[in-house]
């Protein structure tokens, strides 16, 4: 890059930064209404933790679309094809690493279950639990106990899409109530737990897939 182009880039960056700062300064003072509104409606949310109430009840459609985005990202990777060569078998690893994986993975599953349960009344929830599950899958793969995914089978596909499907099914079933994802107050807790449980498994598989699909594509014949 020559000096003129570099200067232009610097000026552009400075201008953009200045515009951002100006935009932030222009923002109206934060509304104290939102936290109060959340607090006022906690009783009908079906959960006791405000963050979960917002994510899965008050603004449930946001979360629905976020899960769809993650799933699309993985689908994009799968659509790009498995690369040349065959799916690699799991790389052999030493017994020390394998023992760590055999020991730690059940505990990670337990931890994911705990985070899922905790989400109803304190920090936790499907996303964190799914991330822990994905970590377990990555550890199993690194220890040579889980092969990379060249192309997922039917069961795996169901697992990947299941969270979104359950979410959509609940949303569709509730359309009769007049609005998307307006849970009946006395079943809200159960429905949210159902959605979160299926989301945990799907998010875990999707996040693990980001690693395992790439690992399969990178392997050489």
């Amino acid at each position: 890059m020559n000096a003129a182009a570099r200067l232009a880039v610097v000026l552009l960056a400075l201008g953009l930064g200045g515009a951002l700062v100006a935009a932030v300064l222009e923002l109206p003072a934060p509304h104290p209404v939102l936290p109060e509104a959340v607090a006022a409606h906690m009783a009908v949310s079906g959960v006791e933790h405000p963050v979960t109430a917002v994510l899965l009840n008050f603004r449930g459609y946001d979360t629905l679309l976020e899960v769809a985005v993650l799933l699309l990202a993985l689908l994009g990777m799968l659509a790009a094809g498995p690369g040349e060569g065959v799916a690699p078998a799991a790389l052999p690893a030493g017994p020390v690493l394998q023992t760590l994986a055999r020991l730690a993975v059940p505990l990670m599953i337990l931890m994911a279950g705990y985070l899922l349960w905790a989400g109803a009344h304190r920090p936790g929830g499907a996303f964190q639990a799914g991330a822990v599950l994905a970590g377990a899958a990555v550890l199993l793969h690194l220890a040579g106990l889980l092969p990379a995914w060249a192309s997922p089978g039917l069961l795996l596909r169901l697992g990947l899409a299941g969270g979104l499907l359950v979410f959509l099914a609940v949303a569709a079933a509730l359309l009769g109530q007049g609005a998307l994802l307006r849970y009946p107050a006395d079943h809200a807790g159960t429905l949210i737990l159902l959605i979160e449980a299926s989301l945990t498994i799907s998010l875990g598989l999707i996040l693990a897939g980001l690693f395992l699909v790439l690992a399969a594509r990178r392997a050489r014949p």
């Binding site: 964190q128 991330a131 822990v132 994905a134 970590g135 990555v138 996040l207 980001l210 690693f211």
Partner: peptide, 8 residues
């Protein structure tokens, strides 16, 4: 952040 950053 801890789960994603450390594990993935």
């Amino acid at each position: 952040e801890a789960a994603i950053g450390a594990g993935l």
